[in-house]
Amino acid sequence: MESQSFSIDTEQDGIAHILRLNGYLDASTSHILDEAIQQILTHSGKNMVIDCAHLSYISSAGLGIFMKHVNGVRSSGGDIVFCSMQKPVFTVFDLLGFPILYKIVDDQSQALSHFAGKE
């Protein structure tokens, strides 16, 4: 059977932290995302690009982690921008109306441009 693991690669671009999500984000793996975002916030990071190019699956547990942190991020003047979503992942965001709350763009360069425009 195909592995359904989850991992995150992080990189600081200067104006934003880029989190590249890989694999399957569910109730068994969402704590990994929670810890990664918490670590960025602890180190004064406020702008986050969530690159979903290699995110194959998301459930409510993953959505809940973004909701948990969005207030703290925005109250510090930052934002969370999503990019490169595969269709199944976008479907879940769209199902609950998340595109109203979050900016979702086609690729990483557009996401970084969003923050560059705010500098």
Partner: peptide
């Protein structure tokens, strides 16, 4: 009500709503 949910920046409790919508 997702509008209220977003305004209040709640988290958690979305699983049942997903099931209901599918």
């Amino acid at each position: 009500n997702m509008d209220d949910y977003f305004v209040n920046k709640q988290y958690g409790g979305l699983g049942i709503e997903i099931i209901r919508r599918i």
